[in-house]
Design a protein around this nucleic acid. Structure first.
Lengths: 219, 219
DNA sequence: CGACAGTAAGTTGTCAACCGTCGCCCCGCA
DNA sequence: TGCGGGGCGACGGTTGACAACTTACTGTCG
């Protein structure tokens, strides 16, 4: 009893709810749980070896993140995205990230900021030879970092709420198509724009980046 | 609140969890639960007459909406906003709503859209003589409608996730200060900008509106 | 008188079992 | 063929319990 019960998925640090959250997020954004699939609470709680109550808390959160959609009578299923929704998600993402870029432009210590961002890009470059998953991961990390560096917690939080949907978009479109959005050069453009301190240039760069990305995914 | 058994004609549409959610949202944004106040699960579940499990689901959601902040070991308390956070919230809000305005500008059937918005403004004008709460309500309804009319569900959802924080900002700053942001004229400006179809004008109008609003709240 | 160990109370995380209800499917009966 | 039930799956919600951990209190001893 005191010893660990059956090995969950190798996660052993946070609350069970958060572990379940991660596990489900991964299962969904990796396609292990196909879009449209109906989720049965007892089935999942059994699978994850957690109680229904704990699971339900996690499910509620996933629902709010937009990974799950609620049908009649509370039946949850994995959300299915169509092309329009992907464009919509990327439009919101663009709005958030352009705010991030503009904010960073106005920061007094832009030097440190751009340094951090360059580090993130280097991580992307390093991952360029790695698996598709790694490339996607490092790309998202760059954009998340951009939001984090603004120091605007609300912005970061909003972006993270969208992250699940972004990942679903990527999965929906297919990983191959997604990686074509991860040119190192185009990300350097963003950083140089921020470095220049020209807010409207930075904004424009992001908008184009996202526009291209969305178009690429739903082409 | 005492939703005891009133089966006949029962239009009890929402689940207990959602009812609790509303009740708590109201309690917080009305100041009944002061910022910083530590919430005890058993106390609340007792107060709301729901079980701890159901309550916890609601709390998780409020936490994600930014109304509650988690302390060490999961202890929740009512979030406390400072001036910077309010500015940050309004910066994100501005980004979202300026996307909404730009989107509406590009819609083919702008006429219907602006008609709906004018109706919303009229509701504000009608509420101008009413209580402070009514004025705030109708103001938020206008902005929410703007997001809804874009047809971008993700945008609407992101805005609604922010709504709680917006309400807390208003409460924090004091209702009197908040109502000064609700000039009917300034809202007409937004609609006319959208009507003109000039996306960058619409964007600019929103940004100024929000900038002024935030400045007003934290002056 | 003050420090310290030990205990008691408070709170969250998690679980298991249970009930009532709703909707769906299938089956039997007319 | 069609309709009424019965059964079953699944969800919303509840109860009661227990472990782990904090915090506060208290009594004892130096």
């Amino acid at each position: 009893m005191a010893g660990a019960t059956a090995p969950l998925l190798g996660l052993e640090k946070k609350s069970l709810r958060e572990q379940a959250l991660s596990a489900l997020r991964i299962a969904i954004t990796s396609g292990e749980l196909e879009p449209g699939r109906h989720l049965v609470e007892t089935e999942l709680s059994d699978m994850l070896q957690i109680s229904r109550g704990t699971l339900r808390e996690a499910l509620r959160q996933l629902e709010q993140e937009g990974l799950l959609s609620a049908g009649p009578r509370g039946r949850l299923s994995v959300r299915h995205l169509d092309a329009k929704e992907i464009r919509d998600i990327f439009a919101v993402r663009a709005a958030l990230e352009s705010l991030a870029a503009r904010t960073l432009c106005e920061l007094p210590d832009r030097v440190q900021v751009t340094a951090s961002l360059r580090t993130a890009i280097e991580a992307m470059a390093a991952a360029a030879e790695g698996s598709l998953e790694e490339r996607i991961e490092s790309d998202l990390e760059f954009h998340r970092t951009m939001c984090r560096l603004t120091g605007n917690e609300t912005l970061l939080h909003s972006w993270e709420s969208l992250e699940g949907s972004i990942r679903m978009s990527i999965m929906f479109a297919g990983l191959e198509r997604a990686v074509s959005n991860m040119s190192v050069d185009r990300h350097y453009d963003i950083v140089t724009a921020i470095e220049s301190g020209d807010a409207s240039l930075a904004r424009q760069t992001i908008l184009e980046h996202m526009d291209g990305a969305a178009a690429n995914l739903v082409s």
